[in-house]
Amino acid sequence: MSAAASSPAETPAARQVDEYGYEPTFYHVKEGEKGPNLTIEDFSLWYGQSRALWNINLGAQKGMVTSLIGPSGCGKSTLLRSLNRMNDLVDGVKTSGQVALDGMPIFGPAVDVIALRKRMGMVFQKPNPFPMSIAENVTYPLKVDGVTDKTMLAEAVENGLKGAALWDEVKDRLKDSALGLSGGQQQRLCIARAIAGNPEVLLMDEPCSALDPIATMKIEDLIDELKGTYTILIVTHNMQQAARCSDNTAFMYLGRLIEYGETDTIFTNPKLKRTEDYVTGRFG
């Protein structure tokens, strides 16, 4: 077990830089009562020859919200997609290191990927509703599990859509094609779909990038509501959003985890210069 989950707050004393000029990750994590749920240990990833992630160590606390920030192309999506092994689908991806969900490793030949994915809901950067009706979209995870009970499905539709702040807009057209929704509505539908599967971990890749402020607020409310029960990882380019709704924030840069710790500290008193430059908007 590395420093990822348990390291106490450090001070930015004289720190060794590696051969590329990067210091080790600086940790000041706010720990939850239940400890880390998802632990990433020394994780690296290559797309063919090019390396996208460099020795990431990070523990997402159980029942808390962890946000991932960093400039475009720094590997946030890559990291998130590694957690439910979505990157398996990309040709030529190699990984090293390990990720554990509740202490159970997720990389390895014996892992049941389907069971793993059922424990993790995912909302993608671009909305990807299925070419079916709105209701069918929400109940897709249940359909996958073979649920056919009408009342259960109807309940899941209502809960999911209410949770994603979409219910009022679509309750009269649940049988219509989901592709007829606006981009923002489609994204909320995808959120509804992700929570309808009742996962333990929710992976959200910029869920609000296509939403208006009111819908964004609703999603943030939803995140507030869900935290406690779900462990949430959220990628965002919106600093205010990260500041508002996350407990811990991880700042990534060019495939490295630079600083990981309490959100307030990251935004008000970042320990490293790179972090400070990014959160104050001096580059990025």
Binding site: L89, A115, R117, P129, F130, Y140, V144, A194
Partner: peptide
């Protein structure tokens, strides 16, 4: 068929 749709389905735990 867009890759994102397959990914969405697989992420829901579909085989």
């Amino acid at each position: 068929v867009p890759r994102s749709m397959r990914e969405g389905s697989l992420a829901c735990g579909a085989s």
